[in-house]
Amino acid sequence: MSSAPQDSPRIRVLVVDDHAIVRDGISTLLNRQADMEVVGEASDGAEAIAMYCQLRPDVTLMDVQMPGIGGVEAITEIRRFSVDARILVLTTYPGDANAVRALRAGAAGYLLKNGIRSALVEAVRSVHSGRRAVSADIAHELALHALDEPLTQREIAILQLIADGYANKQIASRLNVSVETIKAHLKAIFSKLDVHDRTHAVTIAARRGYINPFSSG
């Protein structure tokens, strides 16, 4: 437990995660710190935005993949409301694409939930003091794919539709293009992801955070 001076103001934290058990665990951990207090909990992005505007926490712990408004969209909206918002992503998804989107949206850090508890506590303090906090695994993924050509928005849309169970002909119809155009996009996708079939492409895209497993199609 931290031994912060009694007259030091506590770091006020908002915890955002769609799993109640996870929120409870994080809140319990942070509330045990002498220099921290959890001032609110939100279960999705929309609730996170509303609670941030109401509570104005010092640090917001944000999950990335949630039903409805996801973490990246919530980060963008919160930062639009307050450019000084300090947001730390805490997620189970190690994908570099998710990390890049979150950091570009304004997140000050990106941690994995499977990390040690002390790392989370120290990351909250770091972000609160104006520094960045990125887990070693995420930093490795970012470095590994730094020179990769990113997928375009159209390619990501096609991959999401494949993940949702659509065949090439159906995707072409939904996007109002020819089947040959879809095949050309798939060829480019396979090259960028270094895969040879649709199934592997979806697996890699999901792991790297390009597509959303919560999508209902």
Rank of each mutant, 00 (worst) to 15 (best):
A163E: 07
R154L: 08
D84V: 06
I156G: 07
V72I: 02
D197C: 02
V195W: 03
V124G: 01
T92E: 15
A146I: 13
G109M: 12
R101T: 07
E155G: 02
H140Y: 14
A108F: 07
I75N: 04
P67G: 02
E141I: 07
A85R: 03
V134I: 15
I87Q: 05
A136G: 07
A105C: 08
A74K: 01
Y110W: 05
E155N: 01
L142M: 10
I78V: 08
R80H: 14
E180G: 14
Y110C: 07
L103Y: 03
S178V: 12
A163R: 09
P94Y: 04
V134T: 13
D137N: 06
A108N: 15
A139K: 11
V72T: 00
R104M: 07
V134G: 10
L147T: 15
L142I: 11
G71E: 02
S129W: 08
L142Q: 06
N114F: 14
I182D: 03
I138E: 07
V177C: 09
A102Q: 04
R132P: 08
G115V: 13
S191F: 12
G165E: 03
A136L: 10
E180P: 05
M66G: 00
S135G: 04
L103E: 03
R117Q: 11
G95L: 04
T76S: 14
N168K: 13
P94C: 03
G165Y: 02
E122N: 12
I69S: 00
A74Y: 00
K113T: 06
I116D: 15
I69V: 08
G115D: 13
L111D: 01
L142C: 08
I138V: 15
A105R: 05
R79F: 11
G109I: 09
I78E: 04
T91Q: 10
P150Q: 12
L111E: 01
L193M: 08
T76M: 12
V202K: 01
L144M: 10
E180D: 12
T92F: 13
Q160G: 05
S126R: 15
T152F: 00
A119P: 01
A163L: 02
E73D: 12
